[in-house]
């Protein structure tokens, strides 16, 4: 959709159209994980500085979303999941999306540097670069491991939240990073299983397209095992605690069981019930990160109240 054709049909973009460019649902997860990263840190932050920092971390994530939509407008127009996005639906011109993406990227990085510290701002700049350039422009269309490596972009926000508070990257920040990093592949591959036609039509080399469903099912299960081992071990770390450990044991057992059932199924069986198990695991994975990070917060609150003082 060219800029001229947007003007031709006389549609006037609203604030909501521009807001949709920022991928609000992704932003809400970024807000939450960055906030948890900030709150579980052992160093207190002025509430206003914390609020502004999380706001601009989210804005930076939104900016990278706008850049992603600008770059991927051609494939978004082909996939049913993304065809209603602002650019393919003709509500926002590509040039506007690019301008908004660049402007908000710069603004968010500068404001985070002013509000928090230079390291947090540098990490945010790297996250935007990683998502917009490394993932969107390079990996997404060139390798079936696209979301494995690209998942790092979504894993940075809690680390940035931690750095806002402490000023440095430590083991705990990497633990939160790894939890999201290992969660991303089974989450997206479960989606790709029941959206296979979309990626196929768009020519995106998702694992489902290049290696087939059976290989993807095996990959999902293997990642769920790695994720479970990591998550339960994280329960014994300095940011873990009884709530996180209990949450990790229950959620990972359920998640692994779901992924095991995905692995055991074959495509005809899945088609017969319209990918019910795959859809179920995908929905479960949405709750997975939310509940794990809530558990981190709960353990931090227990520590703050003096009810928990760590494993040793």
């Amino acid at each position: 959709m060219s800029e001229a054709s947007v003007i031709d049909h006389g549609y006037e973009p609203s604030m909501k159209d521009y807001f949709d460019l920022l991928k609000p649902r992704v932003m809400s997860l970024v807000v939450f994980t960055a906030l948890v990263g900030l709150l579980v840190a052992p160093v207190g932050v002025n509430p206003f500085v914390g609020f502004v920092s999380v706001l601009f971390i989210a804005l930076g994530a939104g900016a990278s979303g706008a850049l992603n939509m600008w770059w991927d407008a051609d494939i978004d127009a082909v996939m049913s999941r993304t065809v209603k996005r602002p650019i393919p639906s003709g509500r926002v011109a590509p040039g506007e999306a690019l301008g908004i993406g660049i402007a908000l990227s710069g603004l968010s990085v500068i404001m985070l540097a002013l509000a928090a510290n230079l390291l947090a701002a540098a990490l945010l700049a790297f996250t935007i670069f990683f998502y917009a350039v490394v993932y969107s422009m390079w990996l997404k269309r060139s390798t079936p491991q696209n979301i494995v490596i690209g998942g790092a972009a979504g894993a940075f926000p809690p680390m940035i939240g931690w750095v806002v508070a402490t000023g440095s990257v430590s083991v705990e920040a990497w633990l939160m990073f790894m939890l999201i990093f290992l969660w991303t592949p089974p989450h997206f591959w479960a989606l790709a299983l029941f959206m296979k036609e979309d990626y196929h039509k768009a020519g995106v080399p998702m694992l489902t397209v290049t290696a087939g469903h059976d290989a993807t099912r095996r990959h999902i299960f293997v990642y769920s095992v790695l994720l479970a081992i990591f998550a339960v071990a994280m329960g014994f770390s300095s940011i873990g605690g009884p709530v996180f450990l209990a949450t990790a044991v229950i959620l990972n057992a359920r998640f692994m069981l779901g992924c095991y059932r995905i692995w055991q199924r074959r495509t005809p069986e899945a088609q017969a019930d319209d990918y019910a198990v795959e859809r179920g695991v995908f929905r479960q994975s949405l709750w997975y990160t939310l509940l794990h990070f809530t558990a981190l917060l709960a353990d931090a609150a227990l520590k703050g109240a003096g009810l928990w003082s760590g494993w040793v």
Partner: peptide, 13 residues
């Protein structure tokens, strides 16, 4: 409002 608020917080600190 954000820039003003940040200024107040930073100067107080």
């Amino acid at each position: 409002a954000i820039v003003f608020g940040l200024t107040v917080v930073k100067v107080k600190n």
